[in-house]
Design a protein around this nucleic acid. Sequence first.
DNA 1: GTTCTTAATGGACGATCGTCCATTTAATGT
DNA 2: ACATTAAATGGACGATCGTCCATTAAGAAC
Lengths: 221, 221
Amino acid sequence: MESLEKVEGAKGRKRGARRDPEANKQLLITATLDTIADIGITDTSVSRICERSGLSRGMIHLHFGGKDNLLTAAAQQFSAEYYAEMDRMTDLGPDASPEDRIMAVVEADLSEVLLNPRSTKIWHAFRGIASSHPGIASYSSTQDEKLVDTLRRAFREIAERSGHDPGLADDATSGTLALLEGMWVNYLTDMQGFSREGAGALIRRFLAGLYPGCFEADLDE
Amino acid sequence: MESLEKVEGAKGRKRGARRDPEANKQLLITATLDTIADIGITDTSVSRICERSGLSRGMIHLHFGGKDNLLTAAAQQFSAEYYAEMDRMTDLGPDASPEDRIMAVVEADLSEVLLNPRSTKIWHAFRGIASSHPGIASYSSTQDEKLVDTLRRAFREIAERSGHDPGLADDATSGTLALLEGMWVNYLTDMQGFSREGAGALIRRFLAGLYPGCFEADLDE
DNA sequence: GTTCTTAATGGACGATCGTCCATTTAATGT
DNA sequence: ACATTAAATGGACGATCGTCCATTAAGAAC
């Protein structure tokens, strides 16, 4: 019985490619993000989102109960995708040096996968309306606990190994994140003139100053 | 004749306190910024702005030709006010040390005059829609030429005096601005938990690392 | 094949959007 | 006092907003 149901269900969904609520919810979220990146959050209306998704106008109310909830869901998914990709790109072996782990975060954040026209526009659009949309505010923070922890632990390791002040770790962590934040703004403001390598080198320089003897420029990359 | 006109004009404006196009334009711009800070840029409509300013709904089209132009004018004025205040607060004597001049910029940017709930909300709201509003984009950049120049020159002076690499100045400049950018985001995200002193100390620490021997923590302040 | 359930549609609805303009009001010139 | 000029008003206008629901259509159960 169960296996039969599953097979039939799979067939049905595959054949029609419609009647798949979950897939359509996803379609709406993607269309929302694309629309925001394309024409700005001010002009992102229910009609425009449905138009882009190819679904009917009633779907948003049906699946999300309203535009606001869809926006929140889109922000949540966008944030989740960012951190998932960040995790994937910073999954170095357990024997990687703390410097390498930190710079992996920096370089991931500056890579085209995470830092591109679409993501920057969406990110800043959400941040711009976060103050008046409590639901979205939760997902517009850079202070992801896990990421903060990763950085702080790495900085502490460096301090232990090279005898630096362990109290620096907190400042180094939020400073690194602040620098990355600033780089995103620079990218948004001037995508043509922005240099990923330059931005990475700048942050490395700042960290090298904070932890003398560490973060020496690697000429390999 | 002329003096008589002036007197009468002054009297007339003072008595009625109306019929003053320039003052009303100003009123509209202020109402626009206040509305954005209050209810968010998404809900900032012509009606709401006029409601807050106490003027009639036709005024926006009359004085600015449309909502978009008003928004642009508001962004421009907001930006101008920021830099004017920044200038005022960093006008140290000509014999001030480059470190003091740099830290004056940092502390001004973190002071309540420039960094407060209203300004942060407005700033990020404008930045969020900048991508789709070319007119506003011009005023949402941190890269004010004059400010950049002030910082760069100060960093160069430090390099000359203490024998550091002069090539650092550019990185130090944009790094400082990036750090400040990140601090504004932190403030927006968590106004309660934000510490102006902590933020200033963090930036000083980063700069002290970049320029060993300089930017030692001053215990006076 | 028929019934039942639920996904999906698309138009109706009132509210509000931004623009525009005929009209009123206030100050100036004669 | 009257005419002239410019500022200011507030309602009309069509377009679009977001929400909701009666209807249609598709797949599952029988």
